[in-house]
Nucleic acid binder design. Structure first.
Length: 280
DNA sequence: CCACGATCCTGCTAGC
DNA sequence: TGCTAGCAGGATCGTG
């Protein structure tokens, strides 16, 4: 599933490919629930005839800006992909939005599960009003140690729940939460308020390491994810715990275990990540 | 404030 | 072999 590193990799590809391209048309919007605040007519009116001026990312959201402060925003949830390709190619199955450009290429939003979301914002203010209540600081661009400590102090919950909460910090999903907690040698069920100052610093550093390494490796391709050129990433070959139940911990060799924490499949090394005493 | 369950979807897989 | 029930999961919403 695309999390911050996958969305960042896609954003970098899109910047190289479509900045300056002018929108010629919008089509294939076949599932209205995927676009809660826009229909094909509104999207066309806002985008057609305008060149793409910027590609931005906050957390797992992608923002495609066109001239005149209009923003097409995409969230890929679990199975969505955003791909630039020649317009003559037949549209892939499960294509739910196509943006055609004047140069004969198109951007396709493909999502078998239809969990992905498409939004249109007609000003930066409108976009900010959407982002602010639901997303905290971006986990890579805005999350300094003091800001992370503050986000942690504001909530009394377990570490896994904190890392997955997009309003606390934006961009981390199930995979990178587990990988960061393993690298920091902290159990996902540990309470936020139980962390010492040095554990907080360690978790912050490990989270940055895990996310930046994953970006260098162009994301993790386990089932669906490919980048803006349709290419898989490399980080799936470097996972320590995620999805590795029964395989040895790369640090100590103990067999990785899967448990369910805050309703999510969670992988831990039972030796490196000591279960807190209050938990069963 | 926090936890938990339901919801949205379809592809995959375990089990018969 | 072929079918089906159940699971997975990000964000949101309603309930306790």
């Amino acid at each position: 599933m695309p999390e911050l590193p996958e969305v960042e990799t896609t954003a970098r590809v899109l910047r190289q490919r479509i900045i300056g391209a002018t929108v010629a048309g919008v089509s294939h919007l076949d599932w209205p629930r995927m676009a809660p605040n826009a229909d094909l007519e509104r999207l066309s009116t806002a985008l057609v005839g305008r060149p793409v001026t910027s590609i931005e990312r906050h957390g797992k959201y992608l923002f495609l800006g066109v001239e005149g402060d209009r923003w097409l925003s995409l969230h890929r949830k679990m199975t969505g992909n955003v791909i630039v390709e020649p317009a003559e190619r037949p549209a892939a199955a499960h294509t739910h939005l196509v943006v055609d450009f004047h140069d004969g290429r198109r951007l396709a939003f493909v999502d078998p599960r239809k969990f992905g979301r498409i939004y249109l914002f007609e000003s930066s203010g409108e976009r900010a009003a959407f982002v602010e209540p639901r997303m905290g600081p971006d986990a890579v661009n805005d999350l300094t140690l003091p800001i992370f400590s503050e986000a942690l102090a504001k909530r009394r919950t377990c570490l896994k729940s904190l890392l997955l909460d997009q309003s606390a910090l934006a961009g981390v999903g199930n995979l990178y939460a587990d990988e960061s907690l393993w690298l920091a040698r902290l159990h996902p069920a540990r309470r936020t308020e139980s962390l010492t100052r040095s554990e907080t610093r360690r978790l912050h550093g490990c989270l940055q390491d895990v996310l930046l390494k994953a970006i260098e490796r162009r994301g993790t391709s386990l089932s669906d994810y490919v980048d803006g050129d349709g290419l898989p990433g490399e980080n799936q070959h470097h996972l320590a715990v995620y999805g590795r139940e029964g395989q040895p911990c790369p640090r100590c060799g103990t067999l990785i275990r899967r448990q369910v924490i805050v309703q999510r499949g969670t992988w831990v090394c039972p030796r490196c990540q000591k279960q807190p005493r209050a938990q069963r």
